[in-house]
Design a protein around this nucleic acid. Structure first.
Lengths: 136, 136
DNA sequence: TGTACTGTAATAAAAAATATTACATTATAA
DNA sequence: TTATAATGTAATATTTTTTATTACAGTACA
């Protein structure tokens, strides 16, 4: 998981929850984030796949939130952007298979990294987008 | 925080806990990890600063664990390598200060990212290095 | 039918992570 | 007392990942 993806997604979702009846454009959202609109559209594709938002092509198109912010948990956003990756990762390099630890550590680590993801998700499950939004 | 740092550090600590009476060299550890010895030494410097291990220069030098694995929590390792960074990060780009969200989001996000780190640390506090080691 | 959007692919640029080289310093043991 | 084998660390290079840009097809509206 790219370390900044959650921050990007939460920024987008916050904007959409504040302007909940409008179709915001990727260019407008990108200006708030101060980043590239194409990347915003890619992020939007992921949030859309996960049923959190809707988008409309063509003139006067844009992006809109699908649910009430009260019913969106921050864990919903986290798990959407997390995808298959872990928050913390294994090394790319294959550890030495002739070492008792190297031979087996990735298997053991993987399970621990999943536990870490679960801990994050559980913590974020207690918080709603509504609550985050209301800080602004 | 570099995403792989925790995995690297835990691999090192596992080796040291298994060979707890020996001075392991950075070259030997690096061979198990299949990575560069200089990076292992940098990681070792951090674990040493945090009082988890000891190192000895000169011939027959190396690295040794300082405490019994039973008394090392995985959160001790995590918090050592985490340092000042968050597991998930803010963007580098400054969000738009003319936007109600952009103006303030980093402050709000920062607090949330700290909560995430705390959740990870709390989850790892329940696990000991002894326990992880015994899986091998 | 022109305009203003999304969607997405291809490529480029920038940044971050990892590797390498080099060498000063230190401790040991022959 | 000297050769050797280690850590510590700086400087640089390489590789990988992330971010940005360009380009354009497809779509919907007015």
């Amino acid at each position: 998981m790219v370390k900044t993806k959650f921050s990007i997604a939460l920024h987008i979702m916050t904007l959409l929850s504040i302007y909940k009846d409008e179709w915001l454009t990727s260019a407008w959202i990108a200006a708030s984030l101060n980043m590239n609109p194409v990347l915003v559209r890619k992020e939007i594709a992921i949030l859309k796949e996960n049923g959190l938002i809707d988008s409309k092509e063509g003139k006067n198109g844009g992006v809109r939130i699908l649910k009430d912010a009260k019913n969106i948990k921050l864990s919903d956003i986290f798990n959407s952007v997390k995808g298959e990756d872990n928050v913390l990762s294994l090394l790319k390099n294959t550890p030495n298979p002739d070492c008792i630890v190297g031979k087996q550590i990735n298997q053991n680590l993987k399970s621990l990294l999943n536990t870490i993801d679960k801990a994050v998700s559980d913590a974020l499950e207690k918080q709603t987008l509504e609550n985050f939004k209301n800080q602004f």
